[in-house]
Write a protein that binds this DNA or RNA. Structure first.
Lengths: 255, 255
DNA sequence: CGTCTTGTTGACGGTGCTCAATGAATGTGG
DNA sequence: CCACATTCATTGAGCACCGTCAACAAGACG
């Protein structure tokens, strides 16, 4: 285990994520926290996991920013997910031995791991934890479906707006964004690879959003001036981020 | 249970799918087959499951063709998956109570169900079955990621070719396609909604593929004249359809 | 036998891509 | 600490891919 790390500030986003998992007891939470081992920090552009790698355990992002991606033989790249602190790298390790896609750090990224055996024994002895882990894969799936809708149906300005709304809410949920401000340690080229748009067009689209007074950017700092309006432009509804929660649960009325 | 249905020809694709699931015993197979109940046939365009529906059990497609889809408020539709015989409608029922997307029949489609309680007791008493079900959700995820790559990175002719290769292999795997021939009971408009292309452009792309001698179409019958070449055009590699199988397993050399 | 859906094709235009150049920022090695 | 290289953001020009609109034919269906 990581010793002091479990009580350390660095695990805060992961803690917040665990708290959000339905029905997880304090006992479950400390069981999984205590199983974290082997913390390491990857530099930007470093692969955390390569396609066809044999997976030997479950990794959790504690700090930083990463992505899943697939490459075509000619070099085109599609980013299929962004991983923010608190996200799991490869939950499918429970069933599958090899990855079908790669995971790369986009910013300096700290991860910690749980060995496969430890994880299997956790889910076997703690049904609620097992359920919670499955639940978080379902949220991931829901995000993936929404990304397909985004890339398949929305125009460029809608895609960018939608992604910004999603990332703002996800980062806010783990305490890494507030008051419309968020840090996105990704290049415009990476945004393009996630949204199926060219770098040049990402740049022009961001300029358009700034021109409409919806957004301010300064390097990798983003400031959403009007979340409700940005959500309208992006035809964004946050429901998919809360799969399985009671749909009638009161929600902030910002969209 | 469905009585005669379990031994009936109609369950053949589902049987073939079960046989393909890793490590499933005959006992497991008959347990799940015997749990099938409440067979019903939906007409084309009928919803099998609506967004926000409370899910009361697991449905299996026995015959026909269906899709998962999400709608935007203005009517745009993205099809996020095709369901062929042997596919499950809503495996997430195990964890989540409500659907975040809809499922619709595209052809006359027969489904059978397993009640939630029965399913839960099956997975609790049969670890291999539980593992096999999770495995099939992972294959679904892999297909979803590949669709995102398809829509995000590939040009129209590549997208159509890729989808045709995928559907041919999936249908062949359950005995519904052979010798390059397959039936796709979908309209060109539905292909467009799956690939993020307009109906008109689907039509032109199919014409182009016919012109290149790669494909023949006759209504909803498709004949792939040269699978290897179509796969090359679509930059198609079948790996993602076999997530978790040994990557060294010998494969037909058709791509 | 009308009506509706689907497939097909043409014309036209726009969204977004490619190519190219520039400057700023960042990183690296001497 | 500076010289140099590389990455990244930004903008312009030109054009291609694909969408929209429109029309018509052929089935499918009641």
């Amino acid at each position: 285990m990581l010793g002091d790390l479990t009580s350390d500030f660095i695990a805060a986003p992961f803690m917040r994520r665990l708290n959000a998992l339905v029905g997880l007891s304090d006992d479950d939470k400390s069981a999984i926290l205590d199983s974290l081992t082997d913390a390491r920090t990857a530099r930007p552009r470093a692969d955390l996991l390569r396609a066809d790698d044999v997976i030997d355990g479950l990794s959790v992002v504690l700090e930083g920013f990463a992505c899943r991606y697939k490459l075509l033989p000619d070099g085109r790249r599609q980013i299929v997910a962004f991983l923010v602190p608190g996200d799991f790298c490869d939950l499918r390790v429970l069933v599958v031995e090899r990855a079908d896609h790669a995971v790369a750090a986009l910013a300096p990224t700290t991860t910690a791991s749980i060995t496969r055996d430890r994880l299997l024994s956790l889910v076997n002895t703690r049904p609620r934890l097992s359920r919670a882990l499955w639940w978080s894969t379902l949220v991931e799936d829901a995000i993936l479906r929404e990304w397909l809708v985004n890339v398949g149906q929305r125009a460029a300005i809608e895609r960018v707006s939608h992604l910004l709304c999603e990332l703002y809410l996800r980062l806010e949920a783990v305490g890494l964004a507030a008051d419309g401000r968020l840090e996105l340690p990704v290049t415009q080229s990476e945004l393009g690879d996630a949204l199926g748009l060219s770098t040049v067009h990402i740049n022009r689209t961001l300029r358009e959003l700034r021109g409409q007074g919806l957004l301010e950017t300064n390097g990798k700092s983003y400031f959403i001036r009007d979340l409700a309006r940005l959500a309208r432009v992006g035809i964004f509804s946050p429901d998919y981020l809360r799969v399985g929660r009671d749909l009638l649960e009161p929600r902030p009325d910002r969209y």
